[in-house]
Design a protein around this nucleic acid. Structure first.
Lengths: 231, 231
DNA sequence: CGTATTCTTGACTTATATCAATGTCGGTGG
DNA sequence: CCACCGACATTGATATAAGTCAAGAATACG
């Protein structure tokens, strides 16, 4: 598959890179289309590549020994993902699956050192990316430790609206198919509880649901709920 | 305070560094003694330094707006901590407090880039450290999402025994003062629940408690509990 | 169309938090 | 050195948020 330079160029990760450097980088990359439902890599697999999401949406999940699944994160366009080797692992710690038709770039993992050395900006950028991810994880831990489910779900939905929101006539739509089960796996609860919460919100005019659909009608209202407003 | 080179030398972080490089690095470092209960830095403070723990034990905590506290991690000798700048923050996201008499090394944050560039091994090492921390965070999220409190506490105690365990006649002792409240803040529960759990374990001969003390008498027993053995 | 997901909703159960009271340790100062 | 105080811990009673179990409805898809 041919690589569309203009798409890559527009990503903040590469914005200060010279055309030659960019070309050199892309020379080693392979572009690939991933259809909805397909996995880019599976948990436990040997990490042969690291990736960049150009277009679409992925979710990264982990399953525990006893079969329970959690969503580790959602990958948005422009995000690096699957750089297990940089974190001294030989296998992928989770499964990355397309929840919408996606386009990715793949590099062989053994190119990571070059990738980083040839362009120090990338090294810094990568470290900051991981740092951000660490902070997100801590935020999630803090929320799970101290907040009840409804607030956690509110926060999760607000995050999604920021990262994957598309403005619509009556509010902000989450721009990819997302099920109640997904939201449950992001917040550490059950789909039943999520369903009840969303139904209650819908009755209050905060959101509008639907099968794998979510529209936020009242952002400020949701925000105040997330901040802990009692009712 | 004078820096003890032999202590530094023994840390894996520096083991393959030449004497000259090490000297160059230490030239910019300041050693400091921190007495029990004192904070090395406080949440929200401008990040002027990054640190290395030489001796002792610290806990890093965060407080939420509504005053609830969680323990983000425990810092063990040899660990880097407080490198907020590397993660593109200007302030410290948490408070680092000595739970035992400690000795730390401090470098000005603006030296971080040199620190990293002059010795690429350190850059890699730092990134791996952050990577590990990210994995730990995900493990914690996974546990909080899927496991009941008793198993989480078991896992937390086992981790502590690995990272801060000292072998004793009747088992493994957690080698620093740790309260029920601390364990609660590490596992996202209350001190009451922790107290009940530890009492039950003590009755079964798994552990031996005490004021800010904890001795694990039956590691295999605890492990099987952590792995989900029904009773 | 019928079949399979996904979602909703009710009834019930349970783990864990909350509230409340009391006990115990260990260091400080009289 | 002993008494007292404050921090830490234990334990019971009660409340409740959220999970589990169960059934059915709605929506999408082949």
């Amino acid at each position: 598959m041919k690589i569309d330079r203009t798409v890559v160029r527009s990503l903040s990760l590469f914005d200060r890179m010279s055309d030659e450097d960019l070309d050199r980088l892309l020379a080693h990359a392979t572009a690939r289309r991933v259809v909805q439902g397909d996995a880019v890599f599976e948990q436990g697999e040997q990490a042969a590549n690291f990736f960049l999401l150009l277009h679409g949406r992925l979710k990264v999940t982990q399953v525990t020994e006893d079969g329970q699944q959690i969503i580790v994160r959602v990958v948005h366009p422009g995000d690096l993902f699957g750089f297990a080797k940089a974190l001294q692992r030989s296998d992928y710690p989770g499964t990355a699956r397309a929840v919408a038709e996606s386009v990715i770039l793949a590099w062989p993992t053994d190119l990571w050192p070059q990738f980083v050395e040839q362009n120090p900006r990338l090294a810094v950028s990568a470290m900051q990316t991981i740092g951000q991810r660490l902070e997100e994880a801590h935020t999630r831990i803090r929320e799970m430790s101290t907040q009840e489910v409804e607030r956690r779900v509110a926060h999760a939905v607000l995050r999604l609206s920021r990262q994957a929101g598309r403005k619509e006539e009556h509010g902000v739509r989450i721009d990819f198919p997302i099920s109640r089960q997904d939201i449950a796996e992001m917040t550490g609860t059950t789909l039943h509880t999520v369903s009840r919460i969303l139904s209650a919100w819908e009755a209050r005019g905060l959101v509008e649901g639907g099968r794998q659909k979510l529209l936020i009608r009242d952002l400020p209202g949701l925000s105040s709920l997330a901040e802990g407003a009692r009712d």
